[in-house]
Design a protein around this nucleic acid. Structure first.
Lengths: 347, 347
DNA sequence: GGTGTTTTGAGGTGCGCAACTCATTTTGAG
DNA sequence: CTCAAAATGAGTTGCGCACCTCAAAACACC
C-alpha cells in the first residue's frame, strides 16, 4: 500500500520571501506588469518554478472581482447540432453562475463571411473570450486576429480557421471522420460488390469537403473494387435529399451502401425505407439526434459518426476559462473524439 | 443577433435581507446546522431557490481553508489500464494543487474482498472522498456503506458495487460493451459462415462476465447462424492466452472471428499472426494501449472497444469534488462512453 | 408570573490574492 | 557628483464566504 501526497500549499508570501523580494514585485511579475528589472523577473519566475507554485485559483478568482464574459457566436438557423450545443451550455448555467461566469449567445449568419467578420468586430473589448463557429475566409481570419490582438481569447468551434491566430480549436478532424466512414462502409458491406452512394450538403462547406476527401481516400486505397457513384448535393435539406436518393435508388438497383456526409438524414432514410431497401443497404450518417437515434434502433441506420456536442460546449467554456486564467489546458481532456455510434453503444 | 445574459451575482447578504433573517441564519440553513425552526429553514431555502442563488465557489473554497483529501484505491498489480488512470491523475497535479486538492493513491489487492474491505476501513475519517476499483462482495459492500455513513463521499471506479450506497459509479455498462462487441463481430464477418472464438480472463470477474453475457445475447438473437465456440479463460496473461488461442486455431481452421474480453491481447495477437491468419480473422478486443494501437494500425486488430481512462480519472475527481461541495453533478459530462476505436478514429 | 430552552441576530476574523497608492531605494545618464 | 527615471518595498483594501462567539429575543412550560 504505497502513498504519495501532493505537495503542501505555498502562498505568494512564501515565494516573495524565498526570492528575496516584496509581494508587490511578485505580483508585478505574475501579471506581466511593467517596472521590474529583467533579472529580478527571472529570479522570481525561477522561484515559482522551483517550488511548482500554483496560485490558489479560488483566491485569485475572488480577489479579481469582475465576472468573466464569454460570447458564443453561433449560426442563427435551425441546425439541430448547434441547438444541442446551445442546450448543453444552458445545462451549465448553475456551474457557470457559481463561478461568476457569463456566457452569451450571439446568433448570426456564420455562412456570410462579411456578416460574420462584422459581428466579430462588434465583440471586441466587451468579452474576455469568444467561441465562434467560423467559416474559413480571409475576412473572418482577419477579424479573429483582431480579437486576439485586442487581448480576447478566441476558440474556433466545430469548424476551424487554422490560418488564424485563434488560441484553440474545439472540434474533430473531419478528414479522419470521413476516413472512418469509408472504412466502415468497406468493412460492413463484406464480400458484396456493388455501388456506393454518397450525398453531402454542399462540397463548398469545409467540413463536408474534408469528410468527402477522407472518404474517397480510403475507398480508393483500400476498397477500390467498390464502385463509387458521383457525389450528390442535398443542401442539408430533407426533401431535396429524399428526392435525389429516391431517383438514385431507382436508377441503380445494385447500390449496397450509402454515406450521408451532412444533414438531411431524415430525408435520406425516408427514401431508403420507402423503396423497401432500408435494411439491405449499409447506411452511415453523421451526428446523434433524436432522429438518428431512432434510425439506429430500428436498423435503418447502421452507424452514426458523431462528435459529442455536450463535450464541445463544455470544452469550449473550459478552454476559454483556462486561457483567461493563464492556466495550462488539459489537452487530452479537450481533445474531441470521433464517436462511432451503433445501436448497442448509444449513450 | 439575439443575446441572453446569465443573471447577475447575488450574495448571501442579499438572500439574508430578502428572507428577512440574519446572515448567521442563512449560514445555518446552508450548512444544515441545527437550531433553526423548520419554517424559517423553508423560508430561506425558498428565497435561495427563487433567486437561483449559487454561492460563489471561489469564496466558499477560500473561506473553508482546509485542503480536501481524496484517496484512489487501485489494484497493486501491473494492469496497464489502471496504470493509465494513475498516469492521467498525475497529469492533473497542477490542476489539483491550484485548487488545493490532494489525491493519494492507495494500492491494494482489490481482488481479495477481505483485504479490500480492511483497506477501506483504514481510510475512514481521513478523507473527504474515496474512489475505489471495487470487487462486488458483501464485505466490500459493508465497508463502502461504513465510509458513506461516516460522511465520506464514495465513487466506484471501472467496476461497480450497485448494491452498496456509493454515491456514484464512474465506468461503462459492460453488458452494453459486450453487446457492442457481438454486433461488430456479426457485422464485420459479413456473409461468411464459420466459428467464433471467445477468450476472457476469467468468468468470475464481474466485468468479464457481463461482457460475455452481452456478447452471447447478441450472437444468439441476431447471428444465430454463426457457431460460437466454448469460452476460453486466459487469466489475462499473454503467454497463457497465446497458447490457448494457438491450439484453438490449429483445431478449427474455420474460425472467422475472435473476441478477447479481457487483457492478454498481445498474446492473442501473437498467436494470430504466427499462424498467418491475422488479417483474415476478425479480431476484436478491449482497451486502447500502446499495444492495441499498434495492432489496429497494422490491421491485426479490427476494433478496440474502450473506455477512456483519462475521462474516468478526471470524472472521478470532479464527481468527488462536486459531492464534497454539495454541487450538482453534470450527468452527461460524467457519463463514460463505450468507445469504438478503429484505425481511422484513433485519438 | 417566572424559568429554562430554543431560536435568532450581530459581529468579528481570516482565507490568498488582485489591484492599487505612495514612499523609498537603486540605477543610469550627463 | 547630481538629478531624474526606473525599480522596488511596504502597506491597504476588499472580494464572498465559513466558522465562531456571545448576547438578545422568542418561545414553551409550569
Amino acid at each position: 500500500m504505497a502513498e504519495e501526497t501532493v505537495s503542501a500549499a505555498l502562498t505568494l508570501k512564501d515565494i516573495a520571501r524565498e526570492a528575496g523580494v516584496s509581494l508587490a514585485t511578485v505580483d508585478r511579475v505574475l501579471h506581466n506588469r511593467p517596472g521590474v528589472r529583467s533579472d529580478t523577473v527571472r529570479r522570481v519566475q525561477e522561484t515559482i518554478a522551483r517550488n511548482a507554485f500554483q496560485p490558489h485559483v479560488a483566491a485569485a478568482e475572488l480577489a479579481r472581482g469582475r465576472v468573466r464574459r464569454f460570447a458564443f457566436v453561433m449560426p442563427s438557423g435551425a441546425n439541430p447540432f448547434m441547438q444541442q450545443i446551445e442546450a448543453y451550455l444552458g445545462e451549465m448555467s448553475g456551474w457557470l453562475s457559481a463561478r461568476r461566469l457569463s456566457v452569451e449567445m450571439v446568433n448570426t449568419d456564420v455562412f456570410d463571411p462579411s456578416v460574420l467578420a462584422a459581428t466579430l468586430e462588434t465583440l471586441s473589448g466587451d468579452y474576455d473570450g469568444v467561441a465562434v463557429v467560423a467559416l474559413d475566409h480571409p475576412g473572418v481570419r482577419a477579424a479573429i486576429n483582431d480579437l486576439v490582438d485586442a487581448g480576447t481569447k478566441v476558440v474556433t468551434l466545430v469548424s476551424d480557421v487554422p490560418s488564424s491566430r485563434r488560441h484553440h480549436y474545439v472540434g474533430i478532424d473531419n478528414i479522419a471522420a470521413g476516413r472512418t466512414a469509408g472504412a466502415l462502409v468497406g468493412r460492413l458491406v463484406g464480400q458484396k460488390s456493388g455501388k456506393i452512394a454518397i450525398i453531402a450538403g454542399s462540397r463548398g462547406l469545409r467540413d463536408h469537403a474534408e469528410r468527402i476527401f477522407g472518404f474517397n481516400q480510403v475507398m480508393a486505397s483500400e476498397f477500390s473494387h467498390l464502385d463509387l457513384l458521383p457525389l450528390l448535393e442535398g443542401r442539408d435539406e430533407d426533401d431535396r435529399s429524399e428526392q435525389l436518393i429516391s431517383r438514385l435508388l431507382g436508377k441503380h438497383p445494385d447500390i449496397i451502401a450509402l454515406y450521408n456526409v451532412g444533414a438531411g438524414t431524415q430525408g435520406v432514410a425516408k427514401a431508403l425505407t420507402e423503396t423497401g431497401r432500408g435494411k439491405q443497404i449499409v447506411f452511415i450518417a453523421h451526428d446523434l439526434t433524436a432522429m438518428t437515434r431512432k434510425l439506429l434502433l430500428q436498423g435503418t441506420l447502421d452507424v452514426a459518426i458523431s462528435q459529442n456536442p455536450g463535450h464541445e460546449a463544455r470544452s469550449a467554456v473550459r478552454v476559454l476559462l483556462s486561457l483567461a486564467r493563464n492556466e495550462p489546458i488539459l489537452s487530452e481532456q479537450e481533445n474531441i473524439r470521433i464517436d462511432i455510434l451503433m445501436r448497442d453503444n448509444l449513450p
